[in-house]
Design a protein around this nucleic acid. Structure first.
Lengths: 235, 235
DNA sequence: GTGGCAGAATTGTCGGACAGTCCGATTATC
DNA sequence: GATAATCGGACTGTCCGACAATTCTGCCAC
């Protein structure tokens, strides 16, 4: 079953260097905010050419572990931004041709949980953010693209209010995948907009009153509507 | 509120090139398996130096969009491997200092759903994989590290059996985060091993018999045990 | 068709170079 | 003395050219 011999993968220098630096960051020996030595310096320290260092840096930069302040020259250690990470995930999922049912099942698992926890933990400002997102949806309800963006914003706000980074980061990629489908659906299913608005209202109410069970139930209904909408649209 | 002028972020050439290639891949104009032109060729086409091309390639390579067959020279378009993607996510979460309750809540949302769908959709071989993972846990039950690996393998197998790529990819990062905590817990809480084994058995039974509700419930109990274990361990 | 082989092609790494920009210190100005 | 203009050094982004090691390819023998 398992191969007898493992393939020996030679590590190019740039990858070894990237790994070494990554190790340091993960081990907190380099901490977020720290500035890295200059490329020339790194090249000297590692005993390689600057070009090699640059390739290593690119690797870490795309992982979000290194970055520069806007327009700054010096490189510094940064925490991977959730938005960057999740866009990578959703791109991967998109390339793997995820179907709507798959997406929907995942939303059905995650969003209600997020809503439930949001109801018990939301701060006042997070509640405001929710209300703002819903208001924006109401305002932009005729502009399909803006409306979809508002729906995504609403989900994001719920996840943020859940006070759970893991849930938030699990949820974020779903939004990006949902957008295209939702755009079609919202245009072709007449009652979709009204139902979304109603659900958002109920969810906000529940979260405001800290009724976690209510929040979960309404979010479930909300997500179920997406499936119905998708079925209607497809027929 | 909003700034009058947007900061103009200049995109270095290597990033522009990376974006262009990425676009092609996402738009399926370059499809998985296609081989890319040589670096020299790309440099000519884009009208830049080979070093610049190389930096762009590194970027796409770390995103998992490009890769080489083992020991091959020519670069080809590849689908991002879930394992690569999820390890990036879990590293990001680890750096953000995720707490156990956060992790636990996410598991509580995702794993039962995965188990439920696995019960309705699992193939025979996926069922076997589940049994294998559990058998391995039983066999290695005294070797902490191997036992933890087996637990992770079990969760992975459940997610795979769910037939849902989105759930699987949402779940994968959780495993990597769970491992260290579980290692401590399993060593300090005497009854942990037995309870895990029992839960795995019940879950496998339910999935084998396609009792989705049972599968969900037992998975919930299983995950709840982790919280209890964690509380016991902490005390 | 299989195996082997020489030459072409390609990658990984190197050294050096240069323009544009950012940073810090120094000097000039009010 | 505080602020503004100035200047040199440091650093990045990009380029050029080069070379060893390895892979790829077309060809030949069997």
């Amino acid at each position: 079953m398992t191969d007898l011999f493992l393939p020996l993968d030679d590590h190019p220098a740039y990858r070894q260097i990237a790994n070494q630096i990554e190790q340091r960051i993960v081990a907190r020996s380099l901490r977020a905010g720290d500035t890295l030595p200059s490329e020339t310096d790194l090249a000297r320290q590692f005993g390689v050419n600057r070009s090699t260092i640059r390739e290593a840096i690119r690797e870490l930069e795309t992982h979000g572990l290194l970055g520069r302040e806007r327009g700054a020259k010096r490189l510094r250690v940064t925490l991977p931004k959730p938005s960057r990470v999740s866009s990578g995930v959703s791109r991967a999922l998109a390339l793997h041709d995820v179907t709507f049912p798959e997406l929907w099942e995942a939303m059905m698992a995650i969003e209600p949980a997020a809503a439930q926890h949001a109801a018990t933990r939301r701060s006042a400002s997070q509640l405001q953010a929710l209300a703002r997102a819903s208001a924006r949806f109401k305002r932009e309800i005729t502009d399909t693209e803006a409306a979809v963006a508002a729906v995504v914003e609403f989900f994001t706000a719920v996840a943020a209010a859940s006070g759970n980074q893991v849930l938030a980061l699990s949820q974020a990629p779903l939004n990006l995948l949902l957008a295209p489908t939702l755009t079609r659906m919202i245009d072709r299913v007449p009652q979709a907009r009204a139902r979304i608005l109603e659900a958002q209202g109920k969810i906000i109410d529940a979260i405001k009153l800290k009724k976690s069970e209510q929040a979960r139930i309404w979010m479930e209904k909300h997500i179920r509507d997406f499936k119905r909408g998708h079925e209607l649209e497809a027929s």
